[in-house]
Amino acid sequence: MNQVETAAVRTEGVWKIFQQEAEEVTAVRDVSLTIDRGEFTALAGPSGSGKTTLLNTIGGLTRVTRGNVWVAGQNVTDMSNQALAQLRLNEIGFIFQAYNLLPVLSAMENAEFPMLLQGVDAADRRARVRELFERTGMSGLEDRRPGKLSGGQQQRVAVVRAVASRPALVLADEPTANLDSASSEALLGMMAELNRDLGVTFVFATHDEHVMERSKRLVRMVDGRIDSDELRT
């Protein structure tokens, strides 16, 4: 098997340039990066360093200007919108800074949502979500709507939603930014546990020191480029 097939993510010479009125803004410059399955990687850097944009290009939320991106062995660069939607559904889980749960669905329904789209049968969906809710201390809150949950609880539901559908990769954009330090620490512990026990691949975009400390690999970005890439013990 070659590197592309074994890696959860591989980027090759990726550029992302935004057109803002008459001006071009380069958010990501020539980034080549490989993230293997089971990694717990943080993309760190100050605001405007391009970490979120890189995360978005990996997740197929925005298209690259130049270069190639492979996710779970599939080149996403020229994929149709339909194929990209399928890739996101089956291979990628997202965790957002603002939780982004669907307000009209309960915690259980939110967590089930990707599996509902995948066509997983109801009993299997429920079983997977209940198990993860138990692991994350969310048992008993299944029927609550997001508006009735704290920020930390909402983010835990978002993590369950991202993980329950068994994707190849979970992309988390500043997952702890809206949480207090205790909730943040608990969430990180929970994700580390899921990574260790279930082998879920996590990639974070963050400038939170706690996340960086917890990560097994830290990729620092500055001005759209990779500045350093270190493995941590």
Partner: peptide
């Protein structure tokens, strides 16, 4: 808008 973005990120197509 944000919600539609989330729905598409979770796997819905633009048409859906």
């Amino acid at each position: 808008y944000r919600e539609f973005g989330v729905l598409q990120a979770l796997g819905l197509t633009p048409g859906q």
